[in-house]
């Protein structure tokens, strides 16, 4: 799995590429913890290159959401592939996270 960090319009964009499972999710967890530790106010996680995700991936996002909420940060999950989105739907978490189909919409939702 690859994780690319960039800044767009003062928003931290975390682009993830590859499968997100029990093996790879600790790397993403570490990257998101670093952003939460420095209280990054606006974070977009771009998931268009993630074709597979399991409950470890979900747990990583839930933890990131909890941490960002604590300091009133905003977190948007953008451009999920249908297979990944369906995992959120089975967990009924699609209503808890702010999801976005495009980066332009994600930037708007995060308040950029």
């Amino acid at each position: 799995m690859k994780i690319l960090n960039s800044v767009q319009n003062q928003v931290q964009v975390v682009e993830v590429e590859g499968d997100l499972d029990f093996h790879s999710s600790p790397n993403l967890r570490q990257a998101l913890n670093q952003l939460a530790d420095k209280k990054a106010p606006k974070i977009i996680i771009q998931l268009k290159k993630v074709g597979y995700m399991d409950s470890s991936g979900i747990a990583t996002f839930v933890e990131a959401l909890q941490k960002t909420k604590k300091y009133q940060g905003k977190l948007v999950l953008a451009e999920m592939a249908p297979a990944v989105r369906s995992v959120f739907e089975i967990a009924k978490l699609d209503g808890i996270f702010v999801l976005s189909d495009s980066m332009s919409d994600a930037l708007q939702k995060v308040g950029a």
Partner: peptide
């Protein structure tokens, strides 16, 4: 109990559902 807003505990739920 869904949605579960704390990490973990979803793996078996996925197995049961699918």
């Amino acid at each position: 109990k869904l949605p579960k807003e704390t990490p973990g505990g979803l793996g078996v739920h996925f197995i049961r559902q699918l």
